[in-house]
Design a binder for these strands. Structure first.
Lengths: 229, 229, 229, 229
DNA sequence: AATGAATGAGCCTTCATTCAT
DNA sequence: TATGAATGAAGGCTCATTCAT
C-alpha cells in the first residue's frame, strides 16, 4: 500500500524539528516560541496536536484559544507561552502542513519510475495522505482567508514541483516539449479535486481504490501528455 | 472577446428575479424576505451589492453587518428587514452566485460546437467571469466553512454537468467510452486551478489571453480524451 | 354554577365601553385613543384581544408589539393609531382587567346572603373567573413590574371592598367587632393563593370543586383552625 | 425583637457556602461556576450582592449585565467567568433566596411553642425578614416570569411546610383534624399578603408592630372571623 | 512555566417607535 | 386609517489577550 508513503502525523514533528533550527534559519517558518525544558516541549506538542484537531473540525474562527487549550489539557494562559497569538499558531500549522504534503508525495517517488509512473505514485500518495489527514486539507484551505500568503505559496510551490516533473518528463522524451505552467496548474487541479471528491468526501458507495483512481487520471495524462510516436 | 458570455453582475439581479417568482418556486434558493414596495426592492439590492463587495474583500468573519449596512447606506437595523441573520445573507449570496457561475458557462456554449470546442468555450467563459468577479470565487470558497452544504453542492453540480458533457462527447464518437466521474472531477479541477492562477491571481507579466490558456488546456484534453484514430 | 357570574370576556368590552366616556371622565382609565369609525373600533378590539393573549402567554417583555399586531392581523404601524406605546396598552389592559375581576365577584353576591355566604360566593366566583382567564392573573401580576401603581391600586381596592364586607358582617352581628385592615388583607391573601393553587395551577388530580374549596376556606373563616371543645 | 431571627443577608453567603460543597451536593442549587482562588470568591460575592440590589431595584429586564458589573466594580466580561448568562444569575439568586426565606422562618420556631404560637412566630419572622429585604420579595415574585419553575417550587415548598405544621397541630389536639392542603395555601396567602401590605408597602402611618399584626392574624386562625356566642 | 481570573472592544440581534406613502 | 420599511439605541455575549500569583 502506498499508505506507507504518507507521513502518519499531523505535521507537528516536523514543526518541532524545525524549531531546533530556528536560530540558524534566516526565515523561520515556525512562529512557535522555543521551549527550553522537556516539559515545555511536551506542552507545545499537545498544543499543536490539539489545535490541528480543533481547526480541522471547527475551522479557524469557531475554534477558540480556550477550546484548544482545553483539549490540550493545559491552562488558557499557558497558550501565550508558546505562541504570540492565535493567528501565529494557525500560520505555523499551515506552513508546516504545507511542507508535509509535499514530503509525502516526494517520498512516494522511487528511482527508475517513468514520468507517468511518478505522477501516478504522487497522486496515490496524496490521496492516501488526504484520507488520513482530512483536517490538513481543511486547514490549508482556510488559510486562503487567514493567511493568504501561505495559501498562495502552498499552491505555487506545488505547481512549481509539478512543473519540474513535467519538464523532466519532456527531457526524458516521454512528454511533449510544450508543457509549461498552464499544464502544471491543470495537473495540480486534477489531483486536488480528485482528492476532494475521493479522499475528503469519499462516500461509502465508492468502490475504486486510490490506485485505481490514480490510474484513471494517469490515463488522461498519458494520452494527452505523451508524445505521438 | 468571450467577455460577452459572462454575466456582468454579482448575481443580485438573479436573486431579485427569483424573488419575484418565489410563490411559484418549489424550492426558493434565496433566503431573503420579499419586499413589497419598490423602495424595499431598492434597499434589498443595495444590501446584496454591498455585501458581495464586503464579503469578497474581507471574508465572512471580518465583514460585519454594520460594515455592510454602512456601505449600503442604510441603517443597521434595516438589515434584518431583509435577512434573518448574517449567515442567511451569506447563504443567499453563495447559492445565487453558484447558480450564476454555471449560467455564464452554459451561455458560452453554442450549437454545432464539437465536444472539445465546448470545453474550451466553457473554460474561457469561466476565466472571463472569474476575472471580472473575483469576489464570487472567494465567497464560494469561503462557503466551505460557512455553508458547507452549498459548497459541496456547488462543485457536485458542476461535476455532474461536466460529466454530462463528457458523456455526450462519448456518444458523439469524439471522446473515449470509458469517461466517468473521475474524469469529470479531474476536468473541473483543471479548470478551477487554472482559473485560480490566471484569473484570480493573474499577474501583470502574464501574456496569455484567456483563450490561449483554454486552448492549452484543451490540447491536454484532446490528446487524452479523444479516441485514437 | 357560579360560572355565570364570571364575565366571559378578557375585559375588552369594558375597556371599549369606558372609551365612550373618556371625554367626560376626569381620570380616564383607558389609555387607548378613540376610534371614530366602525372599522377602527373593530381594529381596537382585535388589538386588545390579541394583546391579552400575548401578554398572558409570553409576559410583557417577551411579547412584542409586532407579535401582537401579527396576531391581531394588522400592520405593525397601525398599533400606534390606537396606543401611544406598548406600555400604554399594557396599562389599559391591567386597569380594565382589574375592574373586571371585582365586577365578577360582586355579581356573585345576592341579596339575603349571610356575611359568610357572601365570602364563599365571592371566592367561588373568583376561582371560576381565574380558571377561565388565567392570563388575567398573570397580567395583573406582572403589573408589579410594569405598572406598579396599578398593581398596588388593584389590591388596595380589593382589600377595601373586603374590609367593607367584613365591617358589614360586624354590623350585622355575624362577625367580630374588631375586624380591620389586617383581616381584610389576610382574607384577600387566602383567596388569591387558593386561587393560584386551585385555579391557575389546577392539576388533573384535584378533585375538589370550586364550591368545595370555597366551603373549606369558609370554615376557616367561620371558626378558625382550632378544635371546638 | 424577632429581627434577630431573620438572616441578615441577601443570601449570597448561603450561595457561597453551597459552592464549597458542590462536589458533595447531588443537586447543586447554584448555577454559579466555582472560583478556585480567593480573589475569585470575592468577585463572585460582589457580583451576587450587586445583582440582588439591581434586580431588586430595577427588576430583571431593566437591570443589565453591564449595570450589575458596574455596580460590582468589575469588568463586563468578568461576569461570564461566574455565570453562563444573565438568566443563570437570576435563577441562582432566586433559588438561594427561596431557601433563605424558609430558613429565617424556621429559625423563629422554638421548642415548646404551641401550634398557634408557632404560626405567630413564623409570621413575625417573615415580616421582619421581608421588611429588611424587600428586594427578596420582588425578585422571587418576578421569578414567575423569568424562572416559573422556581417560583412555583418556592410556594409549593412553603405550603408543604405549613401543611406539616397544621398537621402537627392536629396531632397535638390543638387544631382540627380536617385541615389539609387548602388550609395550608390559605394560611400562606394570609401571611404573604399581610407581608405585602405591612412589610413591603409599610407606610409611615402604620402603627402596628410586626408582633401586633401577627397576633391579629393569629386570632383569625384561632377562632375565625365569627363572634363567639 | 503554569494558572485562571480579569479585561473590554466588538459583534449580532432585537424591538419600540417614527415616517413616508 | 393602514401599511410596512426605516431607524438606531441598547443589550447579551464572546473571546483574544493581559496580568497577578
Amino acid at each position: 500500500m502506498a499508505q506507507k508513503a504518507a507521513n502518519g502525523a499531523t505535521g507537528s514533528e516536523a514543526l518541532e524539528d524545525s524549531i531546533g533550527s530556528v536560530a540558524a534559519d534566516p526565515e523561520p517558518i515556525s512562529e512557535a516560541k522555543v521551549p527550553r525544558t522537556e516539559r515545555g516541549r511536551r506542552t507545545l506538542r499537545k498544543l499543536l496536536d490539539a489545535s490541528a484537531i480543533e481547526f480541522g473540525e471547527k475551522g479557524f474562527h469557531e475554534a477558540s484559544v480556550s477550546s484548544i487549550t482545553r483539549r490540550a489539557g493545559i491552562a488558557l494562559g499557558s497558550f501565550y507561552t508558546y505562541f504570540d497569538s492565535k493567528d501565529a499558531l494557525f500560520r505555523a500549522l499551515v506552513r508546516d502542513m504545507s511542507e508535509n504534503v509535499g514530503t509525502s508525495a516526494r517520498a512516494a517517488i522511487a528511482d527508475g519510475m517513468s514520468a507517468l509512473e511518478i505522477e501516478r505514485a504522487a497522486l496515490t500518495a496524496f490521496l492516501d495522505f488526504a484520507s488520513a489527514h482530512k483536517e490538513v486539507y481543511r486547514i490549508i484551505d482556510e488559510a486562503e482567508f487567514v493567511d493568504p500568503a501561505s495559501f498562495r505559496d502552498h499552491y505555487e510551490t506545488i505547481a512549481a514541483r509539478i512543473g519540474q516533473r513535467l519538464h523532466a518528463g519532456s527531457q526524458g522524451g516521454e512528454f511533449r516539449q510544450d508543457l509549461g505552467e498552464v499544464e502544471a496548474w491543470a495537473v495540480m487541479g486534477m489531483n486536488v479535486f480528485v482528492g476532494l471528491r475521493y479522499a475528503i468526501w469519499a462516500s461509502e458507495t465508492d468502490t475504486l481504490s486510490h490506485d485505481d483512481i490514480a490510474a484513471q487520471v494517469n490515463r488522461l495524462l498519458e494520452r494527452g501528455a505523451t508524445r505521438r510516436s
